[in-house]
């Protein structure tokens, strides 16, 4: 446990020292300041727009952290060959990988927490200015939505780890992770489209349906974690949904990290 923790802590500190984090926070801050400005132009659904912008800012900033900070933290060790120094010590490759992931997860949790504070502040600022235009507002739903956004970021970070173990270039990992993100958010709609092609009047071959079905198990279904619309309109979500999606996220992370560890342990470093 100690080994994991020390690697996690080192990674976390390295992440904090990364200047990119400041830039991302600044971007989020700007977007949240824009919230006030944009909401002043909305006629009725001010609450919805305020929540939309706040939650989307968190997602966007979180994504940037995964893409540009998270991937770098692992890739740097591989790129600069500093990994040899780590692996020459009495720790297994799996321990190293899990520890590294824990560090990035810690960084993501902290970043989302900070972003969430700003987001809530901006929402309440708008709410204070236009108290009559928040007919449907649920703080609980907003917090749940932020929590699931965080979970989807953790899933994406795990996927980026998996790709890191496959390729030696951080750029390839970045591209693959971005592609996975895009697929993860379109999978749900593409799957329902090819499974009922008659609705839009297209023909789909059986192979395509099979491929999409296979892809739906391979790639993470990130749409499931996206509860922004529910939070913005304060719609109720059954507890069973939250439970199953939470379990899906956790199991996906464990499976992907397990596969990553297996590949990483057998990998030859040139």
């Amino acid at each position: 446990m100690n080994i994991y923790w020390s690697i996690a802590l080192i990674t976390f500190k390295e992440g904090i020292r990364n200047r990119a984090l400041y830039g991302i926070s600044l971007l989020a801050l700007l977007l949240l300041a824009a919230n006030q400005l944009i909401c002043s132009m909305i006629m009725r659904d001010v609450g919805k727009v305020a929540v939309d912008i706040a939650l989307s800012s968190i997602s966007l900033a979180g994504l940037l952290i995964v893409f540009f900070v998270g991937i770098n933290l692992l890739a740097k060790d591989l790129d600069r060959k500093t990994i040899y120094m780590v692996l020459s010590r009495p720790i297994s490759r799996a321990q190293y990988l899990i520890g590294k992931y824990s560090g990035i997860a810690l960084l993501l949790v902290l970043s989302v927490l900070i972003l969430a504070l700003f987001a809530l502040a901006s929402i309440y600022l708008v709410k204070g200015t236009y108290p009559d235009y928040f007919p449907r507002f649920s703080l609980a739903m907003i917090l749940i939505s932020i929590g699931f956004s965080l979970l989807s970021l953790l899933v994406l970070a795990a996927v980026s780890f998996f790709f890191s173990t496959l390729s030696s270039s951080s750029f390839t990992t970045l591209v693959l992770t971005i592609v996975t993100y895009i697929i993860g958010h379109s999978l749900q709609e593409v799957k329902s489209l090819v499974e009922a092609p008659g609705l839009v009047g297209i023909k789909v071959s059986a192979t395509t349906v099979g491929m999409v079905r296979f892809a739906s198990y391979f790639f993470p279904n990130l749409t499931l974690f996206d509860l922004k619309a529910q939070a913005a309109h304060a719609l109720a979500i059954p507890g069973s949904y939250l439970l199953w999606v939470f379990l899906y996220g956790i199991i996906y992370i464990v499976v992907v990290l397990f596969a990553a560890c297996m590949i990483f342990s057998r990998r030859q470093f040139a």
């Binding site: 919805k48 939309d52 989307s56 997602s59 379109s186 996206d226 922004k228 619309a229």
Partner: peptide, 13 residues
């Protein structure tokens, strides 16, 4: 909807 990914709400705004 497909190309908006998880930013459908904000894009609508």
């Amino acid at each position: 909807r497909l190309s908006a990914l998880e930013f459908k709400g904000v894009l609508a705004d």
